[in-house]
Amino acid sequence: MVNAFGTIQFKEMPSIASTGVVVGPVEKESFFADSFDEILELENEKEESYEQANSRFIEKACTIAVQQGREQMENIDVFIGGDLINQLSPTNFAARKLAIPFLGVFSACASSMESLILGSLLLESGNAKSILAGASSHHPATERQFRYPIEYGAQKPGSAQWTVTAAGFALLQKHAKNAPIITHATIGRVVDGGQKNPLHMGAAMAPAARDTIERHLKNTNSSMADYDVIMTGDLGKIGLNILKEMFQDEDSGVILQDAGAQFYGENSFFNSGASGAGCSAAVFFSYMYDQLKNGVFSRVLLVATGALLSPLTFQQGETIPCIAHAIECRMEKRG
C-alpha cells in the first residue's frame, strides 16, 4: 500500500531470510571484512575478463544466499538484480546461468535497494514466494567504463571514491523465522544538486539522500531518533559530512552513518571511501543484516544512493542527477 508520495507500507511483512555477500581481494582490508561470506583472492580468478568475473561474483553470492536460506535454486520465483556495467550485462549473464525468471534494474548504486523494493512488492502482492534481490559492482570493470584505464596514472583528489568489488544478494521470503522484516520503503526521486564533478560523487548524491530520508520520516510520522541507525549507501566521508550539515538535526550526528565512509576505515589510499552498487549491497546484507539478526539494532533505515551519470553525460557538461531508495527494516522477536 502506498502511504503517501512514494512511501510504501508492507503489511504482509516480507522478510530477508538469508543473504550472500562475495567480495574481492581489496575488500579484505574492509572494516566489515568479518561479516562477508566469502572473500576471493583475485578480482578475476579464472583469467576471465573483468566483466565475466563480475557475473561470477553474482552467481556466487546468489548461490550462498540460497544455500543459507536452505532453499533450492528451482524454488526461487524471481531474480532481481542490477550492476553498473553497460546494459547490465554481468547480471544478465549471471541470470543466464541461474535460469530463474529475471528482472534487471538500474538505479546506479541504488540498484540494491531498488531490487529489494521490487522484490518486497512481489511478495506483498502474493505473486511470489521466494525472491533473490540485490546488486553488484566490480572495481576494474567499472573504472574502465566510467573513468580511466586502471593502470593509468591520474591523480585522484581527496573527494574521490573507490568502487568496491562486491556482490550482495538477499533471499526474500514472507514470514521467514527469526529474520528482519521490511516494513516500509520509500521510492526515491531524481534530485539534481547541480554538481558536475564525477570525482566528487558524495556532494552530488547527498541532496537525493536527504530528500528520500526526509520524505520517509514525514510519511511514516517518525523522527531520526526513532531509528537505531540510518545508513546511507556510498556517500563517502565527505558526502556524509555534507548530508549531516544539510540536516542540522541533533540526532543526525550519531544516527546518520554511511557504508562507504566506514567501508575501508581510515585508510587514506581510498580517499573519501567506498562506492558502487556492491558497497551498499555488501554492507547492508552482511554487517547490517547480522546486527539486526543479533538484536543489536531493532529498527534501521537503509538508504542506497545512486548517481545516474554516464561517461557521456558528464563529458557533455551535464550535471549529475542522483537518486536514493530507502528501506526500513525491523527486527521483532517472534518465536
Partner: peptide, 18 residues
Amino acid sequence: MDQKQFDKIVDKQTPKAP
C-alpha cells in the same frame, strides 16, 4: 534549502587540494 546554501556546504566540506 536552496542551491546557494547547498553550494556553500559543499564548498566547506570539500577538502582543498594542497
